[in-house]
């Protein structure tokens, strides 16, 4: 009788959301072992994130203890004299990511609108698949292309003319100043933009696909144009999801290592000149970690990693919260 009751509980609860009401540890040894393994694996996922934070904090401790909070705003990063401040790397990270987002977001939105609204029916599926496949290409490929192919083109056709154009204009002449060497923050930002574009576009396409068809149709029914439907119906209806897609792209740009390390130029300094070589948090770690001979140098690099961990955690958490409504 008890067995029957238990089965009934299991059956009825399996139907709805109350599957949790089935008690974990009931039944045979296999039952218990399997349920225990599943729970352990789930906890392991939490452990990974906790492990990131704890191990990075321990590794960063010598540097954090020595430099204190000033680590974040100290402008010198000099392994020779042993003075380490994160501001050059933070500035490089923020500037390259900002360039990438400013370029990538409008283009990604345009592609998403094209795929979901404008493209002829036969083109939508293949184009969507192509964009998703491109989002899977390893970032090192974008880095190589950036260094060998894009940087020389960018130097000749973008940097040199812009530097010449703003040569005598105040302010702008210091933001866009020479010499045009091809590598630097602007190049890294553009390559990052190209790299995160397919990814943002793919997420935005999925987000836009959740806008109810009848809303769009009612727009067209009262005579709205394609652009008016996009602007007045699609964007307001999934603004949260679109923002989530942007934040996901930002999370990628902030922490991208390989695409940036090839072309950022590896220079630890702060400058307003976006054509100048610089460093991001990730590229500093990639360039210097293996060659860090003093413990303080390694520790400072891990402290940079901890900073990157905290920044990207916040950005990605925000992205998830905004996309939550879409996925559920």
């Amino acid at each position: 009788m008890a067995l029957v009751d238990r089965q009934r509980v299991a059956t009825s609860s399996a139907a709805g959301d109350s599957r949790r009401s089935v008690r974990f540890f009931n039944g045979s040894a296999f039952e218990r072992a399997f349920a225990g393994l599943c729970l352990a694996a789930a906890l392991f996922v939490l452990l990974i994130l906790g492990g990131f934070f704890v191990s990075l904090t321990i590794g960063a401790w010598p540097a954090l203890a020595k430099f204190g909070p000033a680590f974040v705003w100290t402008t010198t990063w000099n392994p020779v004299t042993g003075v380490f401040g994160a501001l050059p790397a933070i500035a490089g990270t923020l500037i390259t990511s900002a360039i990438a987002i400013v370029i990538a977001v409008p283009l990604a939105f345009a592609i998403a609108i094209f795929i979901t609204q404008l493209a002829p029916e036969w083109l939508r599926q293949p184009l969507g698949v192509a964009i998703e496949l491109l989002a899977a290409i390893p970032s090192i490929i974008y880095g190589m292309w950036g260094l060998f192919v894009f940087a020389p083109v960018f130097r000749t056709f973008v940097q040199a003319p812009i530097i010449a154009l703003f040569d005598n204009v105040p302010v702008l002449s210091s933001i866009f100043s020479g010499p045009a060497i091809g590598i630097g923050m602007a190049t890294a930002g553009v390559v990052l933009a190209i790299m995160i574009l397919p990814f943002i576009a793919a997420v935005m396409r999925d987000v836009i696909a959740t806008v109810p068809k009848r809303l769009k149709e009612s727009g067209y029914a009262i005579g709205a144009t394609d652009w008016e439907v996009a602007r007045a119906i699609i964007i307001p209806n999934c603004a949260g999801g679109l923002t989530g897609a942007v934040f996901l792209g930002l999370g990628r740009a902030l922490g991208e290592t390989m695409a940036v390390t090839f072309i950022i130029g590896n220079a630890n300094r702060i400058t307003a000149n976006i054509f100048a070589p610089s460093n991001t948090i990730a590229s500093t770690i990639a360039n210097e970690f293996q060659e860090a001979y003093t413990d303080m140098h390694s520790s400072a690099l891990i402290a940079l990693g901890l900073l990157l961990f905290v920044i990207t955690f916040i950005v990605l958490a925000l992205a998830r919260l905004m996309l939550k409504r879409i996925s559920s």
């Binding site: 321990i58 996901l248 902030l254 290592t257 990730a282 990639a286 970690f289 961990f309």
Partner: peptide, 18 residues
């Protein structure tokens, strides 16, 4: 979901540490 999008270089640092 956060781990899915975490910068991969952090995984390298984490494993280096442990």
């Amino acid at each position: 979901d956060v781990l899915l999008a975490k910068p991969s270089i952090l995984a390298g640092l984490f494993i280096y540490e442990i």
